[in-house]
Structures are given as C-alpha cells and as structure tokens.
Design a binder for these strands. Structure first.
Lengths: 210, 210, 210, 210
DNA sequence: GATGAATGAGGATTCATTCAT
DNA sequence: AATGAATGAATCCTCATTCAT
C-alpha cells in the first residue's frame, strides 16, 4: 500500500507551473507568437529564471509537447493490446475525448505543430498516427466495414479530424453557435455523436455505395 | 463573347505576387512566424517596397485572408440558393474540395486564424460558418436524417472538420502514409470518400442508435 | 506707373506653396521632426514631386530660412541708414513686431535653428545679430543711456529676447493666460509695452544702480 | 550631523548617467533629432539596454524633463511663500540664474518643448508659469509699479523671456560677440544686468508713459 | 511638373540569451 | 533558484531619395 505521495521539491513545482502556462500560450499564439517574457510573466517569473529550468525556448517547447503527447501515445498503446471488441472504437473515442477535455490545449498544440511542420512532426507521425492507422485498419479488416480496403486509412484519418477538429475549431463554433464547444455539455454531446457515428460507420449496410 | 482580358497594370501584378507569396508563408509559419523580409524576399522585393502596396503587416495579412475567403463565401452563397436536392451535400463537398485543391494554403490559413483567435474570426463565423450551419440544418430537416435535431449542428461541424482537416493535417499523414494527401490521387479519393459518407449519413437507417 | 504684375508661372506658385507649408511644419516640429512626406501632404503633392522644386530636404529647409530671414535683414539695413532719432528704437521694434505678425513662424524657425546649431547660425549671426548690435551700441552711445558701456550688448540682446520670446513662448502663455499672445490684441499691447520699455530704458534716471 | 550618503546602487547610477546624456542630446537636437542609439552610445551602452531603465524614448524624454523642471518649480514655490520684500524679484532672478548655470540644458529643453507643443506644455504652464504670473502680479500690485495693471503679465513674461532667452540664444551671441554667454563672466554680468533692470522697472518714475 | 514604385539606411523596439549577484 | 542589467540579432516600419512613366 503506497504511502502519501511525497510533495515534489519546489523546483519541480515551478517547472510544472512553467510547463502549464507555456502550454496554454504556445497553444494560443504558436511558437513564434509566444515570447519567453510572456511565459515568464504568466508564471510569475522573470525571463531569465526560465533558463534555470529549461535550456531555452526550443527546449521548453519540446518539453511542453512531450509532456502533452506522452499520455496520448500511452492511451493508444493500451488499446492496441486490449481485447478488440465491437465497441472498441467507441471506447477509445470516449477515452480520448475525456483525456482531451482535461487538456484542451493539446489538440491545438498538435495542430500548430503539424501546420508549421515542426521538428516533432516526424515523431508524432511515428508514435501516434502510424500505430493508430495500423490498429484501426486491422480492426476494420476484422469487421468487414462498409468501405473499400484502400479507404480504411481515410476512415481512420476522418476520426482524427473529427476529434482534433472539435477542439481546434472550437473558437469559430463558439462564435457561430453562441455556445462553447469545449463546455462539458457539448463535449459529452460530441462524444455521444462520435460513438453513434462509429456504429453507423462500421455497421454492414445492406447495399454498398458506388 | 468577351474580348481579350486587358493585361493588369504592373503594379497590380506586383500586388498579386506579394499576396501569393504572403499567403504561402503565412500558411506555413503563421502570422508571427513570418517576417516582412521573408515575404519581400520571396516576392523579389525589399521589405520597404511592401509598404508601397500594403499599409503594414497586419493589413497585408488581412488582404491575404480576405482574398482567400471571398471565393469560399461565394461558393456557399451560390449553393444556398441552389435547388436543394438529394445530392446537394455531395455536390457542395466536391466543389469545395476542388476549389481548395487549387488553394491548398487556405484551410491552413483559416485554421491558424481560428487557433490564434485573430480579428477575422468573427467575420469568418458570420459569413461562412453560420450560413453553412443554417443551410445544412435546413437540409437535414427536409431529409429526416438519422440524427436528433440537436445533433444537426454537430453533423455540419463534422463536415467542416473533415474537409479542413484533410488539408491542415496533411503533413502528418504525408509522414505516416508515405503519400501526399494533397496529391491529385488522394484528393480525389478523399472527395469520393466524403460523398459516400454523405449518402451514409443521410440515409434513413432501420434502427436509431442511442 | 507699373502695369499689373504678371501672374507667376504655375511652377512658381507651387514653389511658394511648398515653402509656406514647409515653413509652418519646420517651425512646429523642427527639421528632424518634419518629413518630406508631411510637407508634400500639406502641399497636396507627393514627396517625389518636391524634388522637382528643391534639391532635397536640406535645400528646402535652407530656402525656407532664407526667404524668412531676408526681409528681416533688409529691415535692419534700412534702419541702419535711417536718421537715428530719439524714437528710432521704438520705431524699429514696432516695425519688426508688425513684420513678425504676418510671419509668426519665423521667430520659431530662428530659435530652433539657433538651438540646434544649424548651418545657417553663422550667417544669422553675421547678417542679422552683429549689425543689430553695432547699430544699437552706436545709438546707445549717442544717447547716454543709463547703462555701463559694456552692458550695451546686453541691452540689445534683451531686445532680441523680448521680441523673439514673445513668439517662441507663445504656446505656454496661451495655456497660462487663456489668451493667445499672437492674437492682434495682445500683439499690439506687447508692441506698446516694448515701446514704453524703450523710453524707460534710454531715459536718464536720477540715480544709477550698482 | 548627517552620516555619509550611502552610495546609490549601480543601477541608479546608470539611470542617472542616461538621464544626463539624454538631457544634453535632447537639448541639442530636439526629441526627433535624437536617436536612442545616440543616447545609448553617449552613455556607453547599447540601445537595447536603455529599455532596461526606461519604457521607451518618450518615457525617457519625459523623465529628463521631469527631473529638470522639478527643482525649478520648487524654487518658485519657496519664493512664493517667502517674505515679499523690495528686492524679492532681484533675489529670485539671481537664484534662478545660478540654478540654470549648473543646468544650462534646461532652458533649451523647455524652449523646445514649448515650440513643438509637447505633452508637458500644459503641466509647465500650470506648475511653473501660472504661479509665477500670480506671484509676480501680486508683487507688482503691492509696489505700484510704473505699469498699467493689464501690463503686469507682460512684465512677468518679459522676465521669463530675458532669462530663458539668454540661454536659448546663447549660440548666436557666441558667434556674434566672440564670447560665450554661458561662461561664468557673462552669466554674472547678465545677472547683475537683470537685477539692475528689476530696480529700474519697479521704481516709480515721475511721469507715466503712454 | 507629377507620380507610383523601388530601395538603402536608419528609426524605435522586442527578442532570446547570458552573467554577475 | 531568482533576478536585473546587458547585448546582438532581428523585428516592423519610416525616411529621403531616385527613376521610369
């Protein structure tokens, strides 16, 4: 039985605080649009102090991304080894949505990184998208989904777009719908919508299109 | 029969050239990540010369966005008034995809603008997303789609995510698939996939989920 | 009897217009604080057009100063040769004040030029201040004014300060007095005040100070 | 008996050094004619370093003016409350001249600020000129000076012009007289001249002019 | 004579980073 | 671990000037 978690040393606390505000700022303004002073200010520090915790702006950015992506990759891995059942996709989607709910900056960070072709893009592709594609394609083969096999990757990509897009496009729908897509109510609705979609997409329809 | 288009004055040519390279650079590195010198260099000019054509960086960025978004809005409007038939959605998707094929920077620009909450976000929401939502929701009501009415907006949003996402996430799939999602072959495949999906989504299924 | 003055060629008109606005702007913001574009704009021209009339900024500035100072120097010269009477000083002061009333920018221009040690300073000293000193000292010698001979220059300098200062310090007295020192009423009052002072300064008082 | 003044921290020293050189440069070339690089260079710094001490050029300029004007205002205030005697004006003039001797840039700064209508003009009028006017007018009323009451402000203004003008016009008299008006000898002579003038101006003459 | 477009030089300011304290 | 001060490089932008039209 584990005892109480020992309080992290203050330096560790500061480090996490920096990562938190940096994550928010990088997600909101991108790498180039975020200055070390901005981050320091938001963390109640001086820019110089950041260098006591990170080797520089690039290193800080990398640390933010690493910390954000790791749980996502782990989530993927745990599902890859899990019993592939009928509702596996629905379960994965729900879990991912739930995770992103607590880290809403993460999809934005990923999207920005992808858009600006950052250095972590290759790693993201290798550790996150490729496993997801392999896992998903295998699953679809097993299920005889209503798609051509060479459409399988597009289906997987579609899932990614739907999940990520819900977060990255949130601001514009907030404007257009007068409701925050990241509020709990809409997040749950979107999750249920995606699960419904999952069943629809994998069910064998009577007739094949095209 | 229209006569030959008169050659635009050279100054107009320069202006368009600047807009072209600025569009590419802003889409690739974001507003903050693109310097006036970069743009000038790509347009074979000095940074100072840019100011003979635009009032400043912000104005240039706005001009790029305006020019990019206008055709998109017009596309939407022409469809809003068109005969709403069974395959209206499929036709619209195809047209949008075809338009974006020739302006692949545009979805990235929009995504960046949305992410960083730029000033045009409100306009985008008003002129582009809101009409799309209204048009789509009306269409779905007519068709008795297999969704709850309060899910209709999510369906429309899903379409947007699928179209935009295909472009904004292209780099990572290029890495993961070893094939360029923006190459003609994959663009066509994605278009057909989306049209198939359109039929699937609007067909009345036997049983309702949830 | 001279016939009607022939209308100056349009180029001459433009030239004068440029000089007028340049005079005002240089007087208000100094040489460094005034841009060619400012001047051009105020003259309803493009900066490039200024170069059709003047060789450059420096040349334009010089022309402004020349044009402004010439009448002042001529005024001095005409008085130097005039009959030196008792009220010569009073008459000179009145004439100078009257001239400056129509060219209120001139004292400011001179003051700025003196402050920033421009190139025309030497010329101003030679053509304007030195003759004034010589003329004034001679006059005072003749009149047995109530001053030590080596104070004579100070008296002349005082006159200059009083006349120039009235114009250059006008803005601050406009603030402090709630009345414009350059309005006709105050200009006349100041002129009469200076003439009164002239009599006071040159009258032989009963007792000598110091 | 006060103990030794504690050495100011080095940062304060740098700040003062910057203010010193900025005062000289602003006085010599005006606000627009002085670049941050010039100031930095004269203070043995980089332009960027100036921003560690001041928020920008405008702020630095304001700080220079504030620092310069404060003692002047205080001088005025101390005299306003002092015993108004016959030679009060003479004493004040002497003190002001003595103060300006050690800060010869100050009158130029003020003159420039007045000429270009800077933001501090209103404050100068309120804190410096207006009290001086009130104090002086009161004094003159008490003394039955040889002037119409509505000429009193002109007399006060005349004093200001004579004191300020001596400094702001120094360069041109340096040229014309071959002697520096700001050298101790001439400064003292000017002070004695002004005091003599004070007595002359306030003595009741037998006859009234006008 | 007027102008739009182009440009090199320089303007103020911000940036990421270093270092002594 | 935190910071104030310093700085070189780069930011956006303005400037005076030129030149083809």
């Amino acid at each position: 039985m584990p005892g109480p978690v020992p309080a992290p040393p203050p330096s560790q606390q500061t480090r996490e605080r920096i990562l938190d505000v940096a994550e928010a700022l990088f997600a909101a303004h991108g790498f180039a649009g975020t200055s070390m002073r901005d981050i320091a200010g938001a963390a109640d520090l001086t820019a110089a102090s950041l260098y006591n915790h990170f080797d520089g702006k690039e290193a800080l950015y990398t640390a933010v991304l690493e910390r954000g992506i790791r749980p996502l990759v782990r989530l993927m891995q745990s599902h890859a080894t899990a019993e592939p059942g009928a509702d596996a996709a629905a379960a994965l989607v729900a879990e991912v949505m739930e995770h992103l709910r607590t880290r809403p900056h993460l999809p934005r960070l990923i999207q920005l990184e992808v858009l600006t072709g950052g250095e972590l893009l290759a790693r993201l592709a290798r550790d996150w998208v490729r496993p997801l594609l392999e896992y998903g394609v295998a699953e679809m083969k097993r299920e005889a989904a209503p798609w051509d096999p060479d459409e399988y990757p597009l289906v997987i990509a579609a899932w990614i777009h739907l999940v990520i897009g819900h977060f990255t496009m949130a601001p514009i729908f907030r404007e257009a719908l007068d409701e925050d897509p990241l509020a709990p109510r809409l997040l749950e609705k979107q999750t249920r919508f995606l699960q419904k979609l999952a069943r629809l997409l994998s069910s064998s329809p009577r007739r094949r299109a095209k």
